[in-house]
Simulated scan of single mutants.
Amino acid sequence: MSINALQDELIEDFSFFEDWMAKYEYIIQLGKELPLIDEIYKKPQYLIKGCQSQVWLHADYVDNRVIFTADSDAIITKGLVSLMVKVLSNHTPEEIANTDLYFIDQIGLKEHLSPTRANGLLSMVKQMKMYAIALQSENK
């Protein structure tokens, strides 16, 4: 499934919820379903800088696709990183680096997150795109 198809699916999923409490519960649930990062990657060099909570992110390169795993010590943040992993994982570095993540605005995340969480979300996006670009140049 393409990145845009995954984003459209998330936008549709979020449209079913009437209020932001229900949306937060859904984000928390997604965090519980996140494939966990291997403990060996829970080290400072895998932490996303710019996040108030601790968020570990690792990228593997398999068959010209980037596979992300992640974890966080905060339940909402873990849900947010799971959204990003769901949308960006298992795509080529080019697709990840060049994608426009419009779902963040369309589901209303930006205006419903605290400024520190919104900054953390932007840091996640930036880090995932940087991993993709690095893996792309390493594997040419």
Rank of each mutant, 00 (worst) to 15 (best):
E12M: 12
I75S: 07
Q106P: 00
E9N: 14
A132D: 09
I11Q: 06
D60E: 14
A70H: 04
N98D: 14
D60Y: 10
E18N: 01
K43G: 01
N64H: 11
A22R: 07
V87I: 15
L34W: 08
Q54R: 13
Q7A: 03
W56K: 01
M130E: 15
I11Y: 06
L109Y: 14
L6T: 12
P44G: 08
M128D: 01
T99W: 00
L109I: 12
I67S: 06
S15Q: 10
Y46D: 10
K86P: 08
Q106A: 14
A5N: 14
G31F: 07
S137L: 12
D105R: 13
F17V: 01
L113N: 08
Y41R: 04
Q127I: 06
S72P: 03
L88H: 00
K110G: 00
I27G: 08
E39R: 02
A132K: 09
Q52V: 13
I104S: 04
L34I: 09
L34C: 10
G31D: 10
Y61H: 13
D71T: 06
L57R: 03
D71P: 05
D38E: 15
Y24G: 02
F14N: 08
D73S: 05
I11P: 04
E39N: 07
Y102F: 15
F68A: 03
V62L: 08
N139Q: 13
L30P: 00
E39W: 00
P44M: 09
V87S: 12
T99D: 11
I3Y: 02
L121R: 05
S123L: 05
Q7F: 00
I3T: 01
A5V: 11
Q52Y: 00
I107P: 04
L121Q: 09
W20C: 13
S53T: 02
G108S: 08
E95A: 13
C51W: 06
V85W: 07
A134I: 14
A5E: 15
Q136P: 00
F16H: 15
H58D: 07
T99F: 00
Y61E: 10
K126L: 05
I3F: 00
G50M: 06
K42G: 03
K23I: 12
M84E: 13
S15M: 11
F17P: 02
Q136G: 14
L57A: 04
H91Q: 07
Q106E: 15
I104L: 12
K43A: 15
I3H: 03
Q54E: 10
F103C: 01
K78N: 14
M21G: 08
A132I: 05
M1D: 05
I133S: 04
S137N: 14
L101Q: 11
T92Y: 07
P115Y: 07
H91F: 10
I133D: 00
K140F: 02
H58T: 02
S114N: 06
H91S: 08
S82L: 01
H91T: 05
L10Q: 10
Y131G: 01
Q136F: 11
L34P: 06
C51V: 05
D100Y: 15
R65Q: 13
D71E: 09
I104W: 05
Y46M: 01
Q52M: 13
I75K: 07
T92L: 06
N90Y: 09
L83Q: 06
D100R: 12
Q106N: 14
H58K: 09
I3L: 04
Q127L: 11
